[in-house]
Amino acid sequence: MDNIIISPSKYIQGPNSIESLGKYIKPMGSNALVLADSFVTGLLGKKVDQSFSNAGLNMHMALFNGECSRPEIERLVALAKEKNIDVIVGVGGGKTLDTAKAVAFYNECPVSIMPTLASTDAPTSALSVIYTPEGEFSEYLVYPKNPDMVVLDTQIIANAPTRLLVAGMGDAMSTYFEARANTRSGKQTMAGGAQTLAAQALAKLCYETLLADGYKAKLASDNNLSSKALENIIEANTLLSGIGFESSGLAGAHAIHNGMTKLEECHHMYHGEKVAFGTLAQLVLENAPLEEINTVLDFCRSVGLPTNLFDLGVKTIDIDKLREVAAASSVPDETIHNMPFEVTTDAVLSAILTAHELGCQK
């Protein structure tokens, strides 16, 4: 199996980088379709327009209707062809960005991604999550390459709710531990091959950056201010974790997150918040040293990530419901089987309950 690493062609991050967006887009095309939802259009539309005007580029704003669905993608592809668009720009949250990737793919043109949050590592990835128009999961759309460019304005992200930044830390926290599991098992990553040393190093750096700067970044975000710590965490949440998960592999933490969709009480929690608990459960599953588990617990508590099922909204511990979670986490095609040992439903159930008990202790 070949060693493979994949990543965006260009990554740009800094305060007020939205002002230079047009300049960065210019080498990619001269007639851009900028996709954003109504909230982001109202918040940032004028700045985007000014940036493109300053760069001497044509720009058409297109309103994203809120769901990354096949009909929405087809509508926007038709619009792009009608306007002779040669570059797509997505500005906003995950569904907007996933739709922009899809429109660019079907329009056979480059795409630039500008997240307004640092809540997941999805912006750098070579895939989109497609839903039905009613909002139910439909499919993954996997692309032959990652976005051509990712641009993050750190002041925009500092202005966003802190909880979303912290959720991104929860998602990023899993990166190193899932990468480590794949290193030990030698399983194929989402990049289509074995890990590179570079991907392993980025995954480890992601974890080290979270421990060093996560709490300080949270405090800066609480005050809607950028800082060096916040900039480091934005990079960890987005770039380090993004390359890390695609090119180093997923394992137990994300599989347990997927299993937890069986619990209605958890549906209000963000992806990264559930992944943080999944990371704790994975560490228990692999019998990691208690010292390491306590380090992760201490970090989660410092920034406000959930450490037990009660934090996730579960009212009472129902073993039968948790067994359903464990069963869904360990179906044959789940990433939990990238762990370097055989995984059973009973083992996952035990890990979830033990992680919960450890997370309840102060």
Rank of each mutant, 00 (worst) to 15 (best):
N65H: 12
T132M: 06
I25C: 12
E74F: 05
S20C: 03
E67Y: 09
G56R: 12
G93F: 03
E108A: 09
I130S: 04
A55S: 15
L63M: 08
L79H: 03
N31H: 12
M28R: 14
K81R: 13
G22E: 07
T99N: 05
N31W: 00
A100S: 10
S112W: 01
T96N: 10
H60M: 00
G66S: 11
L57W: 03
G90N: 02
S119Y: 07
N31G: 07
L97H: 06
K83A: 02
L63E: 10
M114P: 05
V77H: 04
V77Q: 01
T99A: 02
I130M: 12
V87M: 00
D37W: 12
M114A: 13
R75N: 10
L35V: 13
I88L: 02
L35T: 07
P115E: 09
L97I: 12
E136S: 11
A104R: 04
E67N: 12
G45E: 13
E108S: 11
K26L: 03
E82A: 06
E134T: 13
L79K: 10
C109T: 11
S125G: 10
T132E: 09
G93P: 04
A78R: 07
V111D: 02
G92E: 02
Y106F: 14
V48Q: 11
D49H: 13
M61W: 09
N54C: 08
S30C: 08
L117P: 04
E67S: 10
K101Y: 07
V129I: 15
D98F: 03
G90P: 05
A62I: 03
L44I: 06
A78W: 01
L97V: 06
T124H: 05
V48I: 15
A126S: 13
A36V: 11
N107M: 05
G56H: 11
Y106I: 00
G93C: 05
V48C: 08
K95L: 09
N31K: 14
Y106G: 00
G90H: 01
Y106P: 03
T41L: 14
R75H: 06
S119C: 11
V91G: 05
Q50V: 07
E136T: 09
A32H: 09
D49K: 14
P27R: 08
P115L: 06
S128D: 02
V48N: 08
